[in-house]
Amino acid sequence: MMRMAVRRVLQIIPLLFVISIISFALIKLSPGDPVKMFVTPNMHPEDVERIRKSLGLTFPVYIQYFRWLGQILHGNLGYSLINSQPVLGQIIQRLPATVGLMGTSLAATLMFSIPLGLIAAKYENTWIDHVLNMISYISISIPVFWFGILLIDFFSVKLNWLPSLGMQTVGVNSFGDLVWHAVLPVTTLTFQGCGAYYRYVRSNTLSEIRKSYVEFGRAKGLSIWKLLWYHVLKNVMLPVITLLGMSLPALISGAYITESVFSWPGLGSLSVNAIFSLDYPIIMAMTLFSGLLLIIGNLLADITYQIVDPRIRK
């Protein structure tokens, strides 16, 4: 296992290099000009060219890339083109909000989807299974922004029970107020994620309960629930671990749409604003962070495989 981990860690550098080249090329090929954010109607063309030169946009594309890469190798993610603030500082400032939101929603997703998947498999082709399947189809199909707007309209506008925007009330810094503001975005993300996790758990549970070790356990007198929780669940968790590894980049990139809908001051809203403003340094930094976390997530998933299933270690 250690040899595999070392090999995968050594692969991170060339993978990130390829990701950076592709991302930089796509950004340069995208339409728009970040200089237009600074241009006023009466500005002289020489002033516009001076702004373009100060931003380093007059160099050839490959020189711009290597200048940016040199800064990255020295631990400098650059400065935002819009507010001239260090990119790393903005990411660190917004990171807790995104990690808290995404971590809570991911924990809630697992807490609901795993038991419901086991229950649906236990009561296959009954009304319980049909109802849960219908809810999961809705969860997978419904656009997350539309569901979030529905929650805001019902619980915030009509009932006035929950706040609709922001992370905290102005002038209030209590933990209870933070939790109160997080209810709707966490509910939105949890409902969206439960559908996929539920389908994985249910389908794998159905294939596992038909295997011989489950029949042997039933023959010994073990209850079906004990078999599900203590034996079947271990094998069912393998594909779930894969989903968890692929969900790790969301802790950095954040829920782009959800954070925008609820005005949650995390990395998702930062990335959306950077995309609309063509803020290249922030876009590149977020892309690299997402790629790095995806690689780390897959590595952690492979390591967890070997811990959960001894057959893989052999």
Rank of each mutant, 00 (worst) to 15 (best):
G166A: 00
G166W: 03
T169S: 03
T169Y: 00
V170T: 06
G171D: 05
G171K: 00
V172F: 03
S174W: 02
S174T: 15
F175R: 08
L178D: 04
V179L: 03
H181A: 08
P185S: 02
T187Q: 07
L189R: 03
L189E: 03
T190L: 03
F191P: 03
Q192P: 02
G193K: 05
G195H: 10
Y197L: 13
R199V: 14
N204I: 07
N204K: 02
S207R: 10
E208D: 05
I209K: 05
I209V: 15
R210H: 14
K211A: 11
K211N: 03
Y213E: 06
E215R: 12
G217Y: 01
R218W: 07
G221T: 02
L222G: 11
L222W: 06
I224A: 10
I224L: 13
I224D: 15
I224S: 13
K226P: 09
L228W: 02
L228S: 06
W229C: 05
Y230V: 10
H231M: 10
N235T: 13
M237K: 04
M237Q: 08
L238T: 09
P239S: 01
I241G: 08
I241H: 09
L243G: 12
G245R: 09
G245Y: 02
M246N: 13
S247K: 04
P249N: 01
I252P: 05
S253Q: 08
T258R: 10
V261S: 00
S263E: 13
W264L: 04
P265Y: 11
P265Q: 07
G266A: 13
G266W: 08
S269D: 11
L270V: 12
